[in-house]
């Protein structure tokens, strides 16, 4: 099945161009990798959102250019994690300041909860996200 995605690194919001992207069969087996954009599309210490049929996935880029993907929902009250401040390998939810680990998706103690994690790969500056069917 072909997957259709739109991504933009263009300066104007209303000029986002759509690209047709094919699933990327990786050597890692039968994972369903989808090309979603370039590393440069996410600001350092920032985040961008990928809309999927199952909801929003937030992609984060740490200060040292590592990329992480989590459901864009804080385990506390569903706050959009993509809007939080990214520090180290953590993000702070903008609603009630829960701190979530980008590596595990788990809330930093003493808070308890977990945001679902997704696989993401960067190859030659291109981002691939594993989207489960």
């Amino acid at each position: 099945m072909n997957t259709v995605a739109a991504y933009g690194n263009t300066p104007f919001v209303d000029e986002i161009r759509a690209y047709v992207i094919r699933p990327y069969e990786s050597e890692m087996g039968k994972m369903n990798w989808t090309q979603i954009g370039n590393l440069e599309d996410i600001p350092r210490q920032g985040s961008r959102v990928v809309n999927t049929a199952k909801g929003e996935i937030a992609l984060f880029r740490s200060v040292d250019d590592q990329v992480f993907a989590l459901d864009n929902r804080c385990p506390h009250k569903g706050g959009p994690l993509s809007q939080g401040i990214v520090h180290g390998k953590r993000v702070t939810c903008p609603l009630h300041s829960w701190v979530i680990s980008l590596e595990s998706g788990e809330a930093v103690a003493p808070d308890v909860g977990c945001a679902h994690r997704h696989e993401v790969r960067v190859a030659h500056g291109v981002l691939f996200l594993e989207v489960k069917a």
């Binding site: 263009t10 919001v13 986002i16 954009g37 920032g46 990928v50 929003e56 989207v131």
Partner: peptide
Amino acid sequence: EGKDAHEYAALAEIA
């Protein structure tokens, strides 16, 4: 006028 456009748009849409 377009500053920080990435803040306001999704990176990608996946059907």
